[in-house]
Design a protein around this nucleic acid. Structure first.
Length: 847
RNA sequence: GCGAGAGUGGCGGAACUGGCAGACGCGCUGGACUUAGGAUCCAGUGGGCAACCCAUGGGGGUUCAACUCCCCCCUCUCGCACCA
C-alpha cells in the first residue's frame, strides 16, 4: 500500500504529518455533526436552494452507484452553501419493499428488524462518506409517522374519485400467490421462482393518473431543466393520440362495439372488426351467435376457448412484440359499418390490447399493415379507400398496406377529398349522425397500486357487509401495519392471514363483522411525495407544513438514475399536482432541474453480483478513505455518462490528495499565522508574482464555472493543473504562496471535504472551511500582458510568437513577418488575404 | 422499423459561441534519490525515423480556418416498438 511506508520522512516522530484519511475523516465528521454545520432552517432573508438525491432502498449496504450519486450531490450542496445559499440537503430511506419480506421468508428475520438494521448500517456508511446532509430531517417511509400520510392522501383521492377499485388483468404468479409488476415478469416467468406467470382478473385499487394525463403532458414543456430524453420518454409513455370514437352496431342485437381510431378517414375501408380476447363483450358476441361460453366445450366454441387460454398465457411483452404472428378466431358474430351499412365479421385477435382505446379495432387492411397481414392470413376482403397521387392501387395486387396520404375513393360523399381533410369532415359527419365523436386516447393507464404483500403501507379501506366499501376515517389514521404476523412464503400475504388485523368494526354502521383491506400500496406511492415531507419532517397535523414547503419547494436540483425516467418521476409529478389541488402547495412541478447520472461500469458491464465485478465502497473507503472515493467517482467521467471503474484511476486520485497534503505541509512551515481567503490583494500579488496570481484567479474561475455546470471532472483537472503549477513554483516559503495553497484547499473542499478541512485548520484558520465563503476571482488578474499568437499560412500552423496582448493586426503582422520561418514560407508567395483573430491567430492566405 | 445520443491516443476523458486537437488522469519509457522501489521527484509520450506530412468512425461539401456547421454512409448505446 502506498501509505504502508513513510514518504521519505525518516524517523517516527513526524508520522503525524502523514496524510492519514481515516483519522482526519472521522475527526471532521464528528465536528460537523457536533457543530450542526449542515442543519438548515427556513429563512426568508436568504435565498433557498433545495438539493435532493434519490433516496436509497435499504438493501443492506451502499453500492458504487450510491457513492457516485451522493458525491455528485454533495459537491453541489457544499459549493452552494459556500456561495451563501440556504441549502436544504436531506436524506432518508425508501424503506418498504419486497426484499425485506423475502429476507423474512428465507431467514426468519422480521422485515422491520431487517430494514432497521440495514438503515442503521447504511447510515453509518453515508456518514463515513462525509456527506453534508441535515440528518435531523431523516425520514423512513416504513414508519407510521410517514405512511400515515400515504393513507391520508389515499383518502383524499378516494373522496375526489381519484382512487377507485376495479377488476383488471394483472400478472399473477401461481406459486408466490401474488401480483407482479410488469417489470418483475422476465420472459414470461416469475423473477423469484421461475413459475410461468399468468394473467388473472383481480379486483384492485387504482389511482386515476389519467385524469391528469393532459396536464402531465403539457407541463413537460415547463421542464427546461430536465434532460430532453427523459421528457421524451414521458411524452411517449403518456402517448396521446387524437382520433375518433365510432359505434358499430352488432347485427341481431342491441349491443354496439365502440372503437377508437386515429384514422377516421379510412372508415369506409373497414372490412372486419378485431376485438381483444379479454374484452367483456366477447362473451356477448358469442351469445349473440347462440353459443354461451359456459356451455359444453365442443366444436367452434372450444376453438375459441383454446385460443383464449393461449393468449391469456402470453405475457404482455410477448403480446406487444411487433414480430408476433397475428392470430385470431372468428366469433361468429357480425356488426354493421355505420357509414356503409355493410355487414362485417368480428374476430378475436391476439394483437388487440384491452388496455388501449376501447379494446376493439376497426380493421382496414388496405391502409393498416397489421390488419393487412391478418386479412391475408384469414382470407378477409381488402378494400382500398385512399389512392396515392402517383400510382393506382389494386386490391388484388397490393402486397402491403398503403399508409400514406392520398385521395379518398369508395367513400360515398367523401370520395375525391384529400384524406387529411376527410378526417375532420368524417368526424363531423359522425357527430351529426350521433354515431361517433372526436376523441383523444392515451397509452398511459391508471396506476394499479394494490400489492398482495406485507411490507408496505396498508390501504385504509374497510369492507362492510351492509355498507360496502368504507374508507377509514381520518381520525383513525394510521392503519398500523401489525408486526406480529407469520412469514411462511406460502398462501396469501401475511396480512390476509391475520384475523386480528382483518377483523374490525365498520366505521359507518358499527357492525363487528367488517373486514380490512389486506392489500398494501405499491412502494412508488411512498416515494411520490417524500421530497415534500423533508421540508417539515416533524409535523403531524398535516402531511407537511404549508409554509415550510412554500419556502423550500420546488426541488431546485434532483439527482438520480435514469431508470426512474418514467415511473418514479411521473408518479411524483402526478402526486404534486394532486396535492396542489388539495391546496397544500401551489407548485405545479416538483423538480425544476434533473440530473440523471450514468451507471458505474466495470469490465464493460454494470456492476452486479452475478457478474462478480462489484467494487464494495467499504473496501474502497477502508483502503483510501472517503475523499479518494468521492474524488475518483467525480473525476473519472462527467456525471451523466457511464463511469468505467479503474483501480489505477483510484490510485491516481489518492496520489493527488497526497500531493496536495505534502504541498500544504511544505508551505505551512512558512510561519503564516492565519489566512483570510477574501483578503487576497491583487495589486500586491500582481507586482510580486503576477503569474501565481493569474493562475490562482484562473483556477477559481474555472472551478467555479465548472461546478456550476456539473463538469466536475474538468473542475478537478483544473485543480490538478493548479497543483502542478504550485509544485513547480520556486518560492514556496512566501506568504503569498501560502495564500495560493489556501485557495487550492478551499476549491478542493466540495470534492474532498475532510482533507481540505484538516489542511485549512493546519494553516491556522479558526473558522470551519465548510462555513467559509467561496472565493471570487478578480477579472483584472486574468488579463495577460503577453499572449501566444499562432501564425498560420493557408490554415496550417507555421509559427508561434509571443506578442503583447491586444496588439492590432498591423502590429501582429509586423512581428510575424520578422520571423525567419515565416520569411522562408512566404518566399516567392503573394499574400492574397490576411485573417486576424486578436490575441489568437494570424492566418496568411497565399497563392 | 421509429426516435434520441454517441463515435477523439494504449485506456478514462478535454476542447464555452468554428480559431494551437489530445487539457487532466491512468498506463508506458527514460532519469534522479535509494540497500531496495510497486514510494517520491524530474523529463518524455497520437502516428509516420527528421524538415515535413498524416490524424477526431468513413466519404463528400461550406470556410482563410471544421472534433465543432451541412449532405450521404457505417458502427455502438439508450428509449419506444402491433397503441388502432
Amino acid at each position: 500500500m502506498a501509505y504502508g511506508k513513510s514518504h521519505g520522512i525518516k524517523g517516527g516522530n513526524l508520522m503525524s504529518d502523514r496524510y492519514e484519511p481515516h483519522i482526519i475523516e472521522k475527526k471532521w465528521q464528528t465536528i460537523w455533526e457536533e457543530k450542526r454545520v449542515f442543519e438548515v432552517k427556513k429563512d426568508i432573508n436568504k435565498k433557498k436552494y433545495y438539493l435532493l438525491e434519490m433516496f436509497p432502498y435499504p438493501s443492506g449496504k451502499i453500492h458504487m452507484g450510491h457513492v457516485r450519486n451522493y458525491s455528485i450531490g454533495d459537491v453541489t450542496a457544499r459549493f452552494l452553501k459556500m456561495k451563501g445559499l440556504n441549502v436544504l440537503h436531506p436524506m432518508g430511506w425508501d424503506a418498504f419493499g419486497m426484499p425485506a419480506e423475502n429476507a423474512a421468508i428465507q431467514h426468519g428475520t422480521h422485515p422491520a428488524k431487517w430494514t432497521r438494521e440495514n438503515i442503521s448500517y447504511m447510515k453509518t456508511q453515508l456518514k463515513q462518506m462525509g456527506l453534508s446532509y441535515d440528518w435531523t430531517r431523516e425520514i423512513a417511509t416504513c414508519t407510521p409517522d410517514y405512511y400515515k400520510w400515504n393513507q391520508w392522501f389515499f383518502l383524499k383521492m378516494y373522496e375526489k374519485r381519484l382512487a377507485y377499485k376495479k377488476e383488471s388483468y394483472v400478472n399473477w404468479c401461481p406459486k408466490c400467490e401474488t401480483v407482479l409488476a410488469n417489470e418483475q415478469v422476465i420472459e414470461g416467468l416469475c423473477w423469484r421462482c421461475d413459475s410461468t406467470v399468468e394473467k388473472r382478473n383481480l379486483n384492485q385499487w387504482f389511482l386515476k393518473i389519467t385524469a391528469y394525463a393532459e396536464e402531465l403532458l403539457t407541463d413537460l414543456d415547463k421542464l427546461n431543466g430536465w434532460p430532453e430524453r427523459v421528457v421524451t420518454m414521458q411524452r411517449n409513455w403518456i402517448g396521446r393520440s387524437i382520433g375518433a370514437e365510432v359505434d358499430f352496431p352488432v347485427e341481431g342485437s342491441n349491443e354496439r362495439l365502440k372503437i377508437f381510431t386515429t384514422r377516421p378517414d379510412t372508415l369506409f375501408g373497414t372490412t372486419f372488426m378485431s376485438i381483444a380476447p379479454e374484452n367483456p363483450m366477447v362473451e356477448k358476441l358469442i351469445e349473440v351467435r347462440g353459443l354461451p361460453l359456459n356451455a359444453s366445450i365442443r366444436g367452434k366454441e372450444s376453438e375459441i376457448r383454446r385460443f383464449f387460454e393461449k393468449i391469456k398465457k402470453q405475457d404482455r411483452s410477448a403480446r406487444t412484440e411487433a414480430l408476433l404472428e397475428k392470430e385470431g378466431v372468428f366469433t361468429g358474430s357480425y356488426c354493421i359499418n355505420p357509414l356503409t351499412n355493410t355487414k362485417i365479421p368480428i374476430y378475436i385477435a391476439n394483437f388487440v390490447l384491452m388496455e388501449y382505446g376501447t379494446g376493439v379495432v376497426m380493421a382496414v387492411p388496405a391502409h393498416d399493415q397489421r390488419d393487412f397481414e391478418f386479412a391475408k392470413k384469414y382470407n378477409l376482403p381488402v378494400k382500398i379507400v385512399i389512392q396515392p397521387p402517383d400510382i393506382k392501387l389494386n386490391e388484388d395486387t397490393i402486397t402491403e398496406a398503403y399508409v400514406d396520404e392520398g385521395v379518398l375513393v369508395n367513400s360515398g360523399q367523401f370520395s375525391g377529398i384529400n384524406n387529411r381533410d376527410a378526417m375532420d369532415a368524417i368526424v363531423k359527419h359522425l357527430e351529426e349522425k350521433g354515431i361517433g365523436k372526436k376523441s383523444i386516447s392515451y397509452k398511459l393507464k391508471d396506476w394499479g397500486i394494490s400489492r398482495q404483500r406485507y411490507w408496505g403501507c396498508p390501504i385504509p379501506i374497510i369492507y362492510c357487509d351492509s355498507c360496502g366499501i368504507v374508507p377509514v376515517p381520518y381520525e383513525k389514521l394510521p392503519v398500523i401495519l401489525p408486526e406480529d404476523v407469520k412469514f411462511t412464503g406460502a398462501g396469501s400475504s401475511p396480512l390476509a392471514q391475520s384475523p386480528e388485523f382483518i377483523q374490525t368494526r365498520c366505521p359507518r354502521c358499527g357492525s363487528n363483522s367488517a373486514k380490512r383491506e389486506t392489500d398494501t400500496m405499491d412502494t412508488f406511492v411512498d416515494s411520490s411525495w417524500y421530497f415534500l415531507k423533508y421540508t417539515s419532517p416533524a409535523g403531524d397535523t398535516l402531511p407537511f407544513d404549508k409554509d415550510e414547503a412554500g419556502y423550500w419547494m420546488p426541488v431546485d436540483q434532483y439527482i438520480g438514475g435514469i431508470e426512474h425516467a418514467v415511473l418514479h418521476l411521473l408518479y411524483s409529478r402526478f402526486f404534486t399536482k394532486v396535492i396542489r389541488d388539495t391546496g397544500l402547495t401551489s407548485i405545479d412541478e416538483p423538480f425544476t432541474n434533473l440530473l440523471t447520472q450514468g451507471m458505474v461500469i466495470k469490465d464493460g458491464a454494470k456492476m452486479s453480483k452475478s457478474k462478480g465485478n462489484v467494487v464494495d465502497p467499504d473496501d474502497l473507503i477502508n483502503k483510501y478513505g472517503a475523499d479518494t472515493a468521492r474524488l475518483f467517482s467525480l473525476f473519472a467521467a462527467p456525471p451523466e455518462k457511464d463511469l468505467e471503474w479503474s483501480d489505477e484511476g483510484v490510485e491516481g486520485s489518492y496520489r493527488f490528495l497526497n500531493r496536495v497534503w505534502r504541498l500544504a505541509e511544505e508551505s505551512k512551515s512558512s510561519g503564516v499565522e492565519e489566512l483570510k481567503s477574501k483578503d487576497i490583494t491583487p495589486s500586491l500579488l500582481n507586482s510580486q508574482t503576477p503569474q501565481l496570481n493569474q493562475e490562482m484567479n484562473r483556477t477559481i474561475k474555472k472551478v467555479t464555472e465548472d461546478i456550476e455546470r456539473f463538469h466536475f471532472n474538468t473542475a478537478i483537472a483544473a485543480l490538478m493543473e493548479y497543483l502542478n503549477f504550485l509544485y513547480r513554483y520556486e518560492d514556496k516559503k512566501s506568504e503569498l504562496f501560502t495564500e495560493a495553497v489556501g485557495t487550492l484547499v478551499i476549491l478542493l473542499s466540495p470534492f474532498a471535504p475532510h482533507i481540505s478541512e484538516e489542511l485549512w485548520q493546519k494553516m491556522g484558520n479558526k473558522e470551519l472551511l465548510a462555513n467559509t465563503l467561496w472565493p471570487s476571482y478578480n477579472e483584472d488578474a486574468l488579463i495577460k500582458n503577453e499572449v501566444i499568437l499562432v501564425i498560420q499560412i493557408n490554415g496550417k500552423i507555421r509559427n508561434r510568437l509571443n506578442i503583447p496582448a491586444g496588439s492590432s493586426q498591423k502590429q501582429a503582422e509586423d512581428i510575424a513577418f520578422k520571423g525567419e520561418k515565416i520569411k522562408e514560407w512566404l518566399k516567392d508567395k503573394k499574400i492574397k488575404k490576411v485573417v486576424y483573430v486578436p490575441d489568437k491567430i494570424l492566418n496568411l492566405v497565399v497563392e
